[in-house]
Design a binder for these strands. Structure first.
Lengths: 335, 335
DNA sequence: CTGAAAGCGCTAACAT
DNA sequence: ATGTTAGCGCTTTCAG
């Protein structure tokens, strides 16, 4: 494996093809016409030397145009992974590279370190996934002089964002349960991204209030199924709990698991609704009623918004992506 | 949102601090001592101007040292996401940026385009996730003059790689089923990364052969649960099928779903083993017996190997990560 | 300890 | 059409 003495530069190509460096550049970029004769010589030389342009040099000349950074939470969570996949698809179609920077802490110095590292790259713009606390922390530390777009569930007045209608989703889920005849709906929440309440929870509360139903205490959960299991076991002991709306599908699936383990039947004894339409939601037993959101679309959309922002348009492209309730078999009227 | 006229450069800082540009550089990098007086002035100026170093310029000077590229398949698959997470953690601890380039096609031109784009970045090295066909295609197109490490399931003589013992895992899963008393074990395979057989399948075959058991035809599946469901429904009609080893957990969970839908009980009628230990495997009903692999470890390990390769060490660091069978409740002796 | 000068690889502007 | 010159922002000599 002979590691190279020195990478092949444009000058090497020029020398071999017997032309000037700018001519090679013109052949590469197609910025100006080159005589067919020289063009061929250049192309041969490029092939022969295995020349690849140096992105750093290009970026130096006209400020990076083809790399963006995605600031995200733990990418093994389905929502992040799927959103990033959407961003990546859009970017790839555009010839843009995507740098992933994971930020798992909301400590100021961690966040600042990550941002600093990301911005020290030749970067054209940033997409922040603000689905959680670290995401929100990033927003507080982002310099003003970079193009930014958000993919998020919480409206933010100051940045263009691809927004999921979390409020509407939470409300729809709750209404569905109410319409089935449940007197009230309990709620297991995901950790809020800012202090206070996340919007899924707010939608739940609004639906309950509008219907004049009792609003039970929120049961705080994590993002993970494991916490759902435990909560399910606990709730199984409370016969008055007949309908539960969970902040995400992992929680809901875990909850069902815990409920069933403890002897409750779903949906006969307890109805459960999730949020996200995780790939496994449909395969769960029972198949999970949930709020569908198109993460891929959100990702692609946030990329488009970033492009606009990079173009200097101050178009506050608030675009709210509607959610849709999918009724499967984890919900039924109370007995 | 006043987008800046021009980004702040080191020269701006130097001017404001009344020092020369190299002095600012020295303060930033700590490459040489600077008088405390000037150092303070420089630091103040940096803060005041919100100066951030330009990575492209740095990369131009001494060839990118702090960005690596990960070439991967669809990142919404758990295995990829978890491996990438491992790489990212190791890289972050090291102050290295990670560029994700997704390659979903194994068409030569798609692969080449993606590689070209990735390498036009100022990149120090590449990690290729060769769990699938596109991953293997990448290997054929990778230039010789970049540092490369692989995270994969199939040994490759020419590159350092963090290797999962897929063969051993497949064999262990099959043996387990045989030891329970099943006369043979059927196999639903994931798509092989190269023509021929993947190593999970090979391990299955070896275990069967060693035990003198009949080797049934391989049932080809995809990576997704959906295909498992369909196969499960079909297999439910064959009472002689009492034990099935699936190429991954998604397939296994779908398979169980299909089996149960069609009236077969798991594990009473049919035992099922998966591969990967997907986060949901444990939560499935019944909890899935599976082969655990530590993707995070593989990711971190491949990063270390890349570092060695970048250091010029030709250490063919073949490191085989053992797999471990976890027996849960989806397997039992045949009736 | 510090500034001046040179150069990383490329592209844009200017002359031919 | 093509070569020459300059310059992107930074680091690294090299003087002093």
């Amino acid at each position: 494996m002979n590691r190279p003495s020195r990478p092949v530069s444009m000058a090497d190509v020029a020398r071999l093809a017997n032309v000037s460096v700018p001519t090679v550049s013109r052949v590469m970029t197609g910025a100006a016409r080159v005589s067919p004769d020289k063009a061929t010589r250049v192309e041969d030389a490029i092939k022969q030397l295995g020349y690849r342009p140096n992105g750093a040099a290009r970026a130096l000349v006209h400020g990076a145009q083809n790399t963006i950074v995605v600031l995200t939470g733990n990418t093994t969570y389905y929502g992040y992974a799927a959103t990033i996949q959407g961003i990546e698809e859009a970017a790839r179609a555009d010839g843009t590279m995507v740098v992933i920077a994971v930020i798992e802490s909301d400590q100021d110095d961690d966040v600042q370190a990550a941002i600093g590292l990301a911005l020290s790259q030749p970067v054209a713009g940033i997409i922040v996934l603000t689905f959680d606390r670290p995401g929100e922390a990033v927003l507080r530390h982002l310099p003003q002089d970079v193009a930014v777009a958000l993919a998020s569930g919480r409206p933010n007045a100051t940045r263009p964002q691809a927004l999921i209608d979390e409020f509407g989703g939470g409300r729809a889920a709750t209404r569905h349960l109410l319409e089935l005849g449940h007197t009230t709906v309990h709620h297991v929440s995901i950790p809020p991204s800012v202090s206070g309440e996340d919007l899924r929870t707010a939608g739940w509360r609004a639906a309950l209030t509008a219907a004049g139903a009792v609003v039970p205490d929120v049961i705080p959960g994590s993002f993970e199924a494991r916490s759902g299991i435990e909560i399910g076991r606990r709730l199984a002991a409370r016969p008055e709990v007949t309908a539960i709306f969970c902040g995400n599908d992992e929680l809901a699936m875990g909850l069902i698991r815990g409920l069933v383990d403890a002897g409750r039947r779903v949906p006969e004894d307890v109805s459960v609704v999730g949020f996200d339409d995780h790939p496994f939601a449909e395969l769960w037993s029972p198949p999970l009623t949930t709020v569908v959101q198109d993460f891929g679309h959100i990702g692609r959309r946030s990329y488009d918004l970033l492009l606009e922002a990079m173009g200097g348009d101050d178009a506050e492209g608030d675009h709210v992506q509607p959610t849709e309730l999918v009724v499967r078999r984890s919900t039924a009227p109370p007995r």
